[in-house]
């Protein structure tokens, strides 16, 4: 376990609302290895963004601990050292909201450079231009304002700002879901290039399984605040074990026959993700599940290790070990 850059141990995050306690993240344990792209998949309301925010330090976890290179970071960003703030960066979903409309691109990218002071004053401008080049934006964008840019270009600026501090872990919260597909491809390409060049680790939050198939090295799937299945990407898509994973895979609209063949055939999606205020007892997925057993409505299943690289949380697989 030497190469683990991020370790999440039994993290819980609850929110108290007038309707009751929302169990947004309910006991998640994961580990992310150095240099990989870890895909965290889930539908809306599954708690994947909350988990990302907990790792980023925006939320303080209700319970559990998070380690970054063996340093405890589970106390929120305020308690983090400058070094940690430099190392862990986040890219938000909507570049319209993550870029200040009243500041120009130069000022936006300059901020992290200035704060972390990794470059001397006279090199600052050079560094900003260099970052702009890295995300393949023309140099005359420096004095433009965000509203003059297209959605994809705005996201490029957000990426440039995130890598400005030379981080080692970048959390990507659905960075392309607000963009068109023709632009998504370019953003992903730049992200992958940057990863290779700067040895970055990505925690990639998304609802797009097909995208994860292409870029992630490992994938975890979340449902109602809990992780259902973690596996290597190829294994995950060839041999999905959890009924929820199968259901998700079977509902993706695809373009070709070959893809059609990969989808589990017999599963027809039913029902909707329930509100995280009143999570059903037992396995939270049981009343949408096609392979429901008696035990499912009574006891919450535990993580079962099928192989070294494949973990699933379902009663179906208890018998195997």
């Amino acid at each position: 376990m030497k190469d683990e850059i991020l370790t999440i141990k039994n993290v819980k995050k609850f929110f108290t609302t007038p309707q009751g306690v929302v169990r947004a993240v309910d006991g998640v344990s994961l580990s992310v290895k150095k240099g990989e792209t870890f895909g965290l998949i889930g539908e809306s309301g599954s708690g994947k963004s909350t988990l990302a925010y907990v790792v980023a330090g925006i939320y303080i976890p209700t319970q559990g601990s998070i380690y970054f290179n063996k340093q405890d970071i589970g106390k929120g960003y305020r308690k983090r050292s400058k070094y940690l703030k430099k190392e862990i960066r986040i890219i938000f979903q909507d570049p319209g909201s993550s870029l200040n409309p009243r500041r120009n691109i130069k000022q936006i990218i300059e901020l992290p450079v200035k704060v972390h002071n990794t470059f001397k004053n006279n090199h600052k401008n050079q560094r900003v231009e260099e970052l702009l080049e890295m995300v393949e934006l023309p140099i005359n964008y420096l004095y433009k304002y965000p509203q003059e840019l297209g959605g994809g270009e705005k996201q490029m600026v957000a990426i440039a700002r995130a890598i400005a501090t030379e981080p080692s872990l970048v959390i990507l919260d659905e960075p392309t879901s607000a963009l068109d597909v023709s632009i998504q491809a370019k953003i992903i390409k730049i992200l992958m290039d940057l990863q290779r060049r700067n040895n970055l680790t990505y925690l990639f939050i998304t609802h797009d399984l097909s995208l994860m198939r292409n870029i992630a090295s490992r994938v975890a799937i979340m449902y109602l605040g809990k992780v259902c299945e973690v596996a290597n990407t190829s294994e995950f898509f060839k041999k999905p074990l959890h009924p929820y994973t199968q259901m998700l895979l079977s509902s993706i609209p695809v373009l070709t026959k070959e893809e059609e063949l990969l989808k589990p055939q017999k599963i027809v999606p039913v029902g909707e993700i329930p509100s995280p205020v009143n999570v059903p007892p037992g396995c939270s997925f049981h009343f949408r599940c096609s392979k429901k057993m008696d035990i499912c409505s009574q006891k919450d299943p535990e993580m079962v290790e099928i192989s070294k690289t494949h973990i699933v949380r379902c009663h179906l697989y208890k018998k195997i070990d």
């Binding site: 297209g150 994809g152 270009e153 597909v181 023709s182 632009i183 998504q184 491809a185 370019k186 992903i188 390409k189 797009d208 399984l209 097909s210 995208l211 198939r213 292409n214 870029i215 990407t233 190829s234 898509f237 895979l249 993706i252 695809v254 373009l255 070709t256 070959e258 893809e259 990969l262 989808k263």
Partner: peptide, 22 residues
């Protein structure tokens, strides 16, 4: 064609690429 190539595939074999410009 560009649009179809831009969509990531479940088979994961093909590198998907976008269309330049906007």
């Amino acid at each position: 064609r560009g649009l179809m190539n831009a969509i990531p595939r479940l088979t994961g074999e093909r590198i998907f690429e976008g269309i330049e410009g906007r």
